[in-house]
Design a protein around this nucleic acid. Sequence first.
DNA 1: CGACCATTTGATATGGATCAAGCGATGTGG
DNA 2: CCACATCGCTTGATCCATATCAAATGGTCG
Lengths: 228, 228
Amino acid sequence: MLTRTASYTRLAIAHTAFTNGAVPIVNTLFGTPTLPGATMHFERNNEIYGEGEPADYVYKVLSGTVRTSKVLNDGRRQIGSFYLPGDTFGLEAGDEHTFCAEAMTDASVLLVKRSTVAAEAQRDSHVARELWAVTARELARAQDHLMLLIKSAQERVAAFLLEMAERVPDQAGIELPMSRQDIADYLGLTIETVSRTLTQLESKAAIELPRSRYIVLRNRSALARLNA
Amino acid sequence: MLTRTASYTRLAIAHTAFTNGAVPIVNTLFGTPTLPGATMHFERNNEIYGEGEPADYVYKVLSGTVRTSKVLNDGRRQIGSFYLPGDTFGLEAGDEHTFCAEAMTDASVLLVKRSTVAAEAQRDSHVARELWAVTARELARAQDHLMLLIKSAQERVAAFLLEMAERVPDQAGIELPMSRQDIADYLGLTIETVSRTLTQLESKAAIELPRSRYIVLRNRSALARLNA
DNA sequence: CGACCATTTGATATGGATCAAGCGATGTGG
DNA sequence: CCACATCGCTTGATCCATATCAAATGGTCG
């Protein structure tokens, strides 16, 4: 079960973000150009923050892709979300991160201090409103994710493909930034089941698999019909 | 699959709350005595709002218990959360409810117009902050719920019992407001599996089942150990 | 008492996990 | 530039946890 290790280079971002080669710039976390932050780069599979670390920053993907995940004590991993450019992550109700965050591909990420966000939200009701909206959308996403996990393997994979198709701009097909293991851990399945299910969908002519990381949706309504 | 019907008396609250026997009172949604609302009573199994209805109100349980749920087109139902007195529910990112809400037991509920909450949050940063906190806690709860659904039946049931024990005041045991079907739909299991699992936990001396709706936790650490 | 509904218990079926092997792409060292 | 190791993915065979189907039990209310 622990064959899934990866040589993650642990970066103590939260504590060194502004002293360890980060480039402090004035930028924006929530659309209006108000919140000062710093951008950092992360290489593929490097940790952005760990589970249980103090949640001192809020993060926004500038480029690349990020996953959040949590590992149970026996090695099972659940992916909370995938984050694409423009997405905000790392918001917490409490004072520490309940999931860890890792760069799925090389990524640049904007960091804004949580205290800055809080102060600005107090001062400016537009920022407060935006902060709430981001959190509420995250909640809606988690609730959708919940619904996924009671469905059959085909339904889960179909829903995943439709979700990704909606989120990535590319029209022709989906360039997947994540591995089969990531997909499996997002959907609560094994890599074998994900792989087999994709093969089944291909033989049903619902999708095409030119390369393993590139998927063309041939028949969206068939996929949507799988979505109970 | 559709044997699970119940004769829900549909109440068109959202549109008639203030004209249909509701008792308008000045009360508070988020702790400080600022937000005007109305209280309404719901009988067991009556709908508070339906899936897809406009989300014009935010709700707070005053007494009784509430469940939110969503039904897939083939009848499978997923319960989003159980709400006990003091809990706020019905917050939405969009303008309609994505789950429905029903009284599990007779319940009285405080309703505050969403527009009132929004206006007050804009005016008063404390309200804004509290609104965010409620939403963020709801997010944390949904994320915990996600983690449940990748676990084994024993782990799910154990986690459910510990969660309920934490939330209900009663020390000796847990008086469950929900049916086995509700528990099953919360945990993504069948009633049979929930029932069998409870029996197993009883034979392990982890719990006692004096009545089907009353459970005594005999050995919390054994239950906690099941929680991967 | 009798009907009804919720819960438990029993027998069997099955979808996805697990175990195991093969395959193709990518990269590395000779 | 090729041989070979490695890694991610696919495919195959078998197993098992939970679903499904079915029946018995128990509690509640008229």
